[in-house]
Computed example of a mutant assay.
Amino acid sequence: MTAPADPLTIKETQRLEELEFVIRAGWKSFIQVGEALNEIKESRLYRKTHPNFEAYCRDIWGWTRQRAYSLIRSIATAEVMATVGVTVANERQARILQPVAREVARTPAPQRTPETLQQARAVVQARISDQMNAAASKAVQQIKAAPPSSPVRQLRVELTCRWQPGIWKASIFIPQQEAQIIQAPTWPEFLEKLVAAFPEEARA
């Protein structure tokens, strides 16, 4: 490996070692891990061995860019949610609450109240409901687009979707089939399961 054009100073090398120790020892303290990663990124302490932050996270920690930045964003999520009395216990909760935290952050910190949290949750829930309704509408349109002779055209699908923090759920009723209950912790996973639940000929 060629020597970096901008080598670390002794002080920076010591600080990098301290931060990497925090990451190794702090798997359960996601805020400390996120703060350590953010400092490594912002101070470019990765440059001794890697050309960029993404390569550093991949090679040293086995993390994708998405995972590393999710940990960093968790810091802001936890800080915002704390202003409305919500303690974020771990990274998973922070990831789930990110959309709510973004809505809460629209209100200046001194003006935030418990009602701010309720309003933020209502906005996010409405947005997710719209997304689920759009997915259901797309599936129904695919059914309608099937040839007139296709049995799938006779289907009368009943789809009920709902969301609560941490879980997306759907109940699907298709004639001559058992009712299906679908749930997933993330929207992409939920959408994938939702589409897969419809008859194959409707998804062709």
Rank of each mutant, 00 (worst) to 15 (best):
Met1Lys: 10
Ala3Gly: 01
Ala5Cys: 09
Asp6Lys: 15
Pro7Asn: 12
Pro7Phe: 12
Thr9Asn: 06
Ile10Pro: 09
Lys11Asn: 13
Gln14Pro: 00
Arg15Trp: 04
Leu16Ile: 07
Glu18Met: 14
Leu19Thr: 03
Glu20Arg: 13
Phe21Gln: 15
Val22Gln: 08
Ala25Gln: 14
Gly26Pro: 14
Ser29Tyr: 12
Ser29Lys: 14
Ile31Asn: 08
Glu35Asn: 10
Glu35Val: 08
Ala36Glu: 10
Ile40Lys: 07
Arg44Gln: 12
Arg44Asp: 02
Tyr46Ser: 07
Arg47Tyr: 03
Lys48Leu: 11
Lys48Ser: 14
Pro51Trp: 11
Asn52Tyr: 11
Ala55His: 08
Ala55Tyr: 05
Tyr56Leu: 09
Cys57Gly: 05
Arg58Leu: 13
Gly62Thr: 09
Trp63Glu: 07
Arg65Gly: 00
Gln66Cys: 05
Tyr69Ile: 06
Tyr69Glu: 09
Leu71Gly: 03
Ser74Gly: 15
Ile75Phe: 11
Ile75Met: 10
Ala76Cys: 06
Thr77Phe: 07
Thr83Glu: 14
Val86Leu: 08
Val88Ser: 07
Val88Arg: 09
Glu91Gln: 15
Ala94Gly: 11
Ile96Glu: 11
Gln98Lys: 15
Pro99Tyr: 01
Val100Gln: 07
Val100Phe: 11
Ala105Asp: 15
Arg106Thr: 15
Thr107Asp: 05
Ala109Leu: 10
Ala109Ser: 10
Arg112Gly: 06
Arg112Phe: 05
Arg112Ile: 05
Pro114Arg: 08
Glu115Asn: 10
Glu115Asp: 13
Thr116Phe: 01
Thr116Tyr: 03
Ala120Arg: 06
Ala126Thr: 09
Arg127Trp: 01
Ile128Pro: 06
Ile128Trp: 15
Ile128Glu: 15
Asn133Phe: 05
Ala135Leu: 14
Ala136Met: 00
Val140Cys: 06
Gln142Trp: 12
Lys144Cys: 11
Lys144His: 15
Lys144Arg: 15
Lys144Tyr: 13
Ala145Ser: 09
Ala145His: 04
Pro148Gln: 01
Pro151Gly: 02
Arg153Tyr: 03
Gln154Pro: 00
Gln154Trp: 01
Leu155Asn: 02
Thr160Arg: 13
Arg162Ser: 08
Gln164Pro: 02
Gln164Ile: 01
Pro165Asp: 12
Gly166Asn: 04
Trp168Pro: 00
Lys169Asp: 08
Lys169Ile: 12
Ala170Met: 04
Ser171Tyr: 02
Ile172Lys: 08
Ile172Cys: 07
Ile172Met: 11
Phe173Thr: 13
Gln176Ile: 04
Glu178Leu: 06
Gln180Met: 13
Ile181Ala: 11
Ala184Pro: 02
Glu189Gly: 03
Leu191Arg: 14
Leu191Ser: 08
Glu192Thr: 05
Lys193His: 01
Val195Arg: 11
Val195Phe: 13
Ala196Ser: 12
Ala196Trp: 05
Phe198Arg: 01
Pro199Asn: 03
Ala204Tyr: 10
